[in-house]
Design a protein around this nucleic acid. Structure first.
Lengths: 100, 100
DNA sequence: ATCTAAACTTTGTCTTGCAAAGTTATACTT
DNA sequence: AAGTATAACTTTGCAAGACAAAGTTTAGAT
């Protein structure tokens, strides 16, 4: 009936789902903005981002803005594709849950 | 922007999300049917069901069908409400993820 | 009494999230 | 150059939780 294995575990975890959702809404997110929005500790956030990066879902850009180092994160094409697929599963769950 | 804390951890975990989704589609599910559908081990399934039961989300009914003991599970009113709320969060994520 | 299947419990392992503290990197100030 | 400040990252350790496997209990059938 449902293939819950399709619920990509990498994306499904709450912290990373938050990251992926935010990244999907803008072309690029500075680390500090993600941190403020998600209220995660530095270490936790960096680790999740690295996990997503290692999976090829997130691109990392380092530059200097206003005389401060700034690292920004963005979805890769692969990341966007994976997220889109993940969202399709979510949608089918929402529909099923509402008996549609 | 998003309140990811609202993503009820109890429901969000893959195994239990599967259970809740199935329970939402029918009035009642026998243990064996859940097991077949979700392909979980007895122990794992029972544990998740007990967790949901302890949270007041799932009701348990024991009877005998065809000369075999049969335990059936159903959403409680509280469980349905919690799941509905959870689905609303999912839906907002889907929308955000698609830039709607 | 024994068999069988359903349902449940126990046990142990392994993963993973997470925070706290420490480290490195970069740029500014004195 | 030395010190300061902030960003970003790493390390460490712990705690929670998923999960499977094996063992236990229950209840009816033979």
């Amino acid at each position: 009936m449902f293939d819950f294995d399709k619920l990509d575990k990498l994306i499904h975890e709450r912290g990373r789902l938050g990251i992926m959702t935010l990244l999907a809404t803008r072309a690029s997110w500075p680390f500090q903005d993600l941190k403020a929005e998600l209220k995660m500790s530095d270490g936790n956030l960096v680790t999740h981002l690295r996990t997503l990066h290692d999976a090829g879902h997130v691109a990392i850009t380092k530059e200097v803005q206003n005389d401060r180092p700034q690292t920004s994160y963005a979805l890769t094409a692969k990341g966007r594709a994976a997220f889109t697929e993940y969202l399709a599963v979510l949608e089918s769950i929402v529909k099923a849950g509402r008996n549609e």
